[in-house]
Design a protein around this nucleic acid. Structure first.
Lengths: 205, 205, 205, 205
DNA sequence: CATGAATGAGGCTTCATTCAT
DNA sequence: TATGAATGAAGCCTCATTCAT
């Protein structure tokens, strides 16, 4: 019994998208050819155009898919509550590092996007909104309780956490040489997380 | 004493390198063609091969040039001394942001490099060494005087500062949407710097 | 008696043929893709192959349809009789211009055909025969009565009329520039018809 | 001793243009591929782009070349004078037929142009102006002397002659079948010319 | 030193057609 | 009857590079 033709198409489309994510993340938009994609997906070149229009649209679809996939992890953050306040920075640093670890294409897509996009894509907007609303409230509570400084806004706080985790993931190659290779060993990562958290949360000290 | 002909050659070579920096930073290695470079430098295509061998070597030369140029700014950091300790974090954040502002190709070259290079280039190795030696000593002094926590190593400290400034510069496009557009206004940048510094240096509070 | 399904098929076939005439006339054989045809007829690509075999056969069918449709207008000429002899040239010029006006795809199909066909298609053979038999007889009568010169054969006479009307219709774009734009205004057309008729029929003058 | 490189380039460019005229005239814009052109000119594909930009520009250049070449023949018409008035129609019909015979690509380029161009190309303008100024004056003289009717403008007169000669050349394939094959034999052409001239110039009869 | 000519490979995309449901 | 999936070839054009002057 053969697979219904529409399901075959779904599989084909998925194969293309999977290959697109893999290859675009690795080699970028310009570094990936339609031929590479077709071979990577084991698909006829023309199928790509049938399903995704052109290379650019496929790239955007792949990018969106990666962002959405990675961002789904942030749902876990909604379960954080006041009990977690003392360790919040540590938890968030570990969480964002973990997201990058689980979604190794994410930082590369962010990188390619920032380098190649001239304008901000609208679909990015609010992608992190849901978790941020929750975290912002939690942070506010933390400020009232003296866990966080009143001087430091939530935006700056979360910006710093995202910066550290992104920078650590994306700039491994240059930072290994320019700063210190030890920060990128397994042990180094732990130290980084703990010391960063201590530095940022030293209010309580 | 150079002959006029040699001087012309130097000018030509400089024009090519300048165009290479400008175009490679903007469009990346794959996004820039030899023709673009030739037109950008107002030079015959063949001159590029005569002076730089091939496209890849020219890219590497351009990258090195950008890194070296930007890094020269760090010499200013050697003048920092113990009097600056209380405001060190603020000073450094401003300095690194300023470097990116003065060398707008830097973060893009770092980005392309991190995405395209498979291995760490050796020449990056000690590029920041000189300023770091000085800063590390200063930081140690700060720790002894209780300005900085003993728990936080210099590597983590400087890593965080570089992360924040790089992230702010390089991820403007995505971060504008996902985090907050206000962090990228002139006023927002000041707030970011001051609050970050406060957060990181709050030991004293 | 046809079943609903068969009627649907007829409608589909007609839609395809109508789209084919429209698109082939406008863009030619090579300029029209099967996809264009399918979209133009709001039909699945495969239907075209089911009904017409392939692109070439569809083109030939469309061409034949246009020629036949336009030629049907010539039945009106059968009603011309000896009373019309003095104005015959005028009548015919107006008639052929009118045919082109009513069948704007005709001259384009003639054009594509003459440019693309290597050999004369057999089905064209006697397409104008019926009206020509009648007109030839009328012309002979005109010659006997001194309306037309004995020196000029019917073939040359009718050839000239067809040439003038076809040239005016088909070569608008080039003739507008090379000869005179005024011949292509509404008023200019009338002048052309009347002066041509006068020129050709000036025997009586 | 080798050919100077610039002369080689000239030869190459000429080969491309010659092939373009031959192939575009035969198969049209869409029917001719860059590969066909490259092979036809025994040239690397890329040379076409180096010298002519793209396919469309090459087509336009070829078209212009054909028109200019054919039009140069019209200089002969400047030598016509009042002595030729009685046979002017005959002379012109023969001349224009001769032009088509010597420039067999002309009518095809006109055909492709009329079918494919949406707007009138500006460069066509005035291409026939020089000879027309002379002929118009001659025709006016003929009218004064009673050789041509005052009723018939020069524009209509010359339009008719061009229509007949173009139609005969371009519509051979369809007209052979629909009108009469005999008009396209050598003898038939003579009859056509003479009878047409007689018909148009019968004023004097 | 500098230029323009030339090349072969590969880029993205669309084509006419056939297959499977 | 009708549809969507799939294919391989070919379309135009640009690429990085080398050659000849």
């Amino acid at each position: 019994m053969k697979t219904p033709i529409q399901q075959r198409a779904v599989k084909t489309k998925e194969r293309i998208l999977a290959a697109a994510i893999r290859l675009f993340a690795r080699d970028g938009f310009q570094g990936t050819s339609i031929d590479d994609l077709a071979k990577g997906a084991k698909v006829n070149r023309q199928r790509i155009y049938a399903y995704f229009g052109n290379k650019k649209k496929l790239f955007e679809t792949a990018m969106l898919e990666v962002f959405a996939g990675a961002n789904a992890e942030d749902d876990r953050l909604l379960e954080l509550n006041e009990k977690d306040l003392p360790e919040l920075t540590l938890i968030l640093l570990r969480h964002y590092l973990d997201v990058h670890r689980k979604h190794p294409t994410l930082h590369r897509m962010i990188g390619w996007g920032n380098l190649q996009l001239r304008e901000t894509p609208q679909w990015l907007k609010d992608i992190k909104k849901k978790s941020f609303i929750h975290l912002r409230q939690l942070y506010r509570t933390g400020q009232k309780r003296g866990v966080f400084s009143e001087q430091v806004s939530f935006d700056v706080y979360i910006f710093t956490l995202l910066a550290v985790t992104y920078f650590h993931t994306a700039n491994r190659i240059t930072a290994t040489q320019t700063i210190s290779p030890e920060l990128f060993t397994n042990e180094g990562i732990n130290q980084l997380v703990e010391q960063s958290a201590a530095m940022i949360m030293q209010k309580g000290n």
